[in-house]
Nucleic acid binder design. Sequence first.
DNA 1: AACAAACATCTTGACAGTCAAACAATCACT
DNA 2: AGTGATTGTTTGACTGTCAAGATGTTTGTT
Lengths: 146, 146
Amino acid sequence: MRAPMSEIAKLSHQLVELYEKLSSWEQDVVKSSGLSTAQMHTIEIVGHGAQGGGALRMKELAKKMGVTTGTLTVMVDRLEQQGLLQRTPHETDRRSYLIALTEKGQNLFAEHHQYHLRLTEEITAILSAEEQALFSAVLEKIIGQI
Amino acid sequence: MRAPMSEIAKLSHQLVELYEKLSSWEQDVVKSSGLSTAQMHTIEIVGHGAQGGGALRMKELAKKMGVTTGTLTVMVDRLEQQGLLQRTPHETDRRSYLIALTEKGQNLFAEHHQYHLRLTEEITAILSAEEQALFSAVLEKIIGQI
DNA sequence: AACAAACATCTTGACAGTCAAACAATCACT
DNA sequence: AGTGATTGTTTGACTGTCAAGATGTTTGTT
C-alpha cells in the first residue's frame, strides 16, 4: 500500500526545508569561526576520520569529500598555513601523505562538534522520549536506504 | 527529563549523516542537468516563489538565497542567457525587476521536483504508515524550532 | 518644485572553490 | 630493469562569493 501523493509531496517539502535550515544554521556557525564552510567541512572529515582510527591520505580524503585531489591540494595547503592541519609522510608509501589535525585543529573541531551537540539538544528538548527514539530509528532506516 | 548524552551524540551524528547523503544525492542529480548546484538552487527558489504567488525582486530573491545582490546579478545573467530565467520590469518601481522562470525554466524545475518526489517515495517505501506520519510530525516540530 | 536621503540594481576588483588535464615522483609487477 | 598504474601537485579556466563604489529611482521634507 503506497502513501497518497499529497503525503509524499508534504514530506518532500519538509525534507527540503530541513535541509535548508540546517544549511543556513551551519553557515552561520562556521562564519563565526572565520573559516569557509568548505574548510570547516574538511576539518570535520579529517577529525572524524581520526576518531575512526587512522589518518587519511589525500586521495581518500578527496573521495570522502567528493572533490578532486587537485582541489584538495590547495585546500590542505591553506589549512596547513593556518596551522589547523598537517601533512606527515606516509611510512611506507613515499608518494603519500597522511593528513591530520594539529592541536589547534583538534580544538576547533571539538568546538564545532559542541555546536552540533547543542543544536541536537535543542531539537530533542521539544520531542518526547518516544518521539526521539522513533525519530532516531527512522533516520537509521533512511540513512541506510539513500 | 533530559535524554542521556550518548543519545544526543547518536542523533547528532545521524543528522550530519542525513545531511551529507542528501547533499551528495542532490549534487549527483543536479550534475546530470548540466547546471551547478547554486544555479539549480536559484531555479528552485524562483520556482517555489512563483507557486506561492508573485515573482520576486532581485533583493527578495537574494535574501531568500542568503547571498548579496551583486552575486545574484551575475547568477541571473547566466541563467537568463541559458533561457531559464527572465527579468521583467516591475510595474510601478522602475528600479526593480521581477524574476521569473521561462517555460524552459519551468520544465527544468518540474523535472527536478519530480526527482525530489521520487527520492521521498523511496524513503517512505521503507516506512510503515505510522512511522511516516510520526516522522512527518517530528519534522514539522523540528523545522519550527530551528 | 527642489533637494536630500534611502533604495534597488549593477559593476568592479579580489579571492576561494572547483575541475580537467598535464606533470613528477613512486610503486608494483613481470 | 622496465613498464604501466598510482599518488599528489601544478596549471589554466571558470563559477561563486563579497565588499565597495556607481547609477538610476523613489520617497519624504521643505
